[in-house]
Design a protein around this nucleic acid. Structure first.
Lengths: 251, 251
DNA sequence: CGCATGTTTGACTTCAGTCAATTTTGGTGG
DNA sequence: CCACCAAAATTGACTGAAGTCAAACATGCG
């Protein structure tokens, strides 16, 4: 069983080549510091244990956060208290961008496993020298746009696909993201629970469980708790492309 | 029956106070020009008839577009050809921001009625003077963030709410947007068809039809084709807050 | 005026949710 | 180290919200 934990070098060398260096302020980043530290409002970062809250819906925007290692879920809470996971995040992702709209975080972010983040104080954006600014702004806009694209795909998933296709599409999406980070495309450990998968896919936990069982029986997956091996990417892709036959499209 | 068409002044005075003036290049904006003009790749804008394509998924990012009057739907198309409307847009909205991720439009935009847009050439962002740049970048990032927030709410809707609650929430959202633009909060004409409403809400057209009928019978709405009068905002809000009892949340 | 398109209504079906019961797992303290 | 317990995951039986199919009706453009 392969370990797919994604680790970023904790050296300052990694920081030297970081595209967000101008934003973090260039301080030391004790990713491997001996104790977790409070994150919100602070410029430091450190190993955050599982289920740490990075920011909460309604918080004032102090910093954006660069996820360095581990993984994070972001979710929104409605007036009546129900929650919807809107994204899973992996190293390299910027967290908290949606707060740029109002100055308040419009979602909550919680680590799915031990993780490390770098704080990017939002104010520092205003203080950037003219030479650096354009590049950084463009980078942030691109990051925000990428998140928009992902959310649009999520809506497509929720709106047009049956449970099985949603599930297959999520596995393929995770597969792509791991591959993009140099991990195996076909073998990985899920950092999220069945409950969290179910919530993201907007199906019942039992349905996720049945889907795992079913795809395993059909030799598309090999599953052992949170470890997943994709036995047939083409088969998975075929499943992901089946649409829930909602009569016709819009227009 | 009130007319809720939102009109932006076509005078240069309106342009003078436009926050995006630096981006459009300050040319004349013939909103009331005598003929529609091709939009994509062009810096001009003009009255676009209903169902005009502003950009299409896969197009190279040439310009962002400021919607000046009318309304627009944006939608994504999946590999297997099915489409999901991801947003409805109204005057003041920036269109095409998701293209900032890859340099290619990741969604398509089509007018729902006669509309006018201003072209904001994306290249011009790089050419901005240092004094102006920060403000414009921050504005664009805020706009992108707002769209992210809206998409998160959309996901919450699709994931956690029953058909009736989705429908009520959409009406309230439209109501808010009209009110924010100085139009009536309780009376408006929908610029989208039942089919388009259904697609956005991810329900069947028949369901939308039944919902209109039902809410009318319950004296929450008065509907006459595309004209809607909200008879009870509180009742609508109550309906919007009912959750589809998916057992427990994530975590 | 007429036809294509959009909308409404009714009857029936189904996918996935709910409920319930059982098994497995991981964390904690004796 | 292992026993225990709460939480997570699985499995099966049943149910219901909303989808599908079909047919009638309205509307608006050419």
């Amino acid at each position: 069983m392969r370990d797919n934990v994604i680790r970023f070098p904790a050296t300052s060398a990694a920081c030297a080549s970081c595209r967000w260096l101008k934003l973090c302020g260039g301080r030391a980043h004790p990713v491997s510091a001996d104790r977790p530290q409070a994150v919100n409002g602070s410029a430091v970062c450190g190993p955050l244990p599982r289920r740490s809250n990075i920011f909460h819906q309604g918080d004032v925007l102090g910093s954006l956060y660069l996820l360095r290692s581990g993984s994070v879920k972001t979710y929104v809470t409605s007036a009546d208290g129900c929650e919807q996971i809107v994204a899973f995040h992996f190293p390299g992702d910027i967290l908290g961008l949606d707060a740029a709209a109002t100055g308040f975080h419009e979602s909550s972010a919680v680590t799915l496993e031990t993780s490390a983040v770098c704080s990017l104080p939002y104010q520092r954006l205003q203080q950037l020298g003219a030479d650096d600014a354009g590049e950084v702004w463009a980078g942030l806009l691109a990051a925000a746009a990428q998140q928009t694209v992902n959310k649009q795909q999520h809506a497509l998933l929720l709106g047009q696909k049956c449970a099985q296709a949603r599930f297959a599409a999520l596995l393929l999406h995770l597969s792509d993201r791991f591959a993009a980070r140099g991990c195996s495309r076909t073998e990985f450990n899920l950092s999220m629970s069945r409950q969290e998968l179910a919530n993201y896919l907007a199906v019942a936990v039992e349905t996720v469980s049945r889907l795992f069982t079913d795809l395993q029986r059909r030799r598309v997956l090999k599953v052992e708790r949170r470890f997943v091996r994709i036995l047939s990417l083409p088969a998975l892709a075929r499943l992901a492309n089946q649409e829930r036959a909602l009569e016709a499209s819009h227009g």
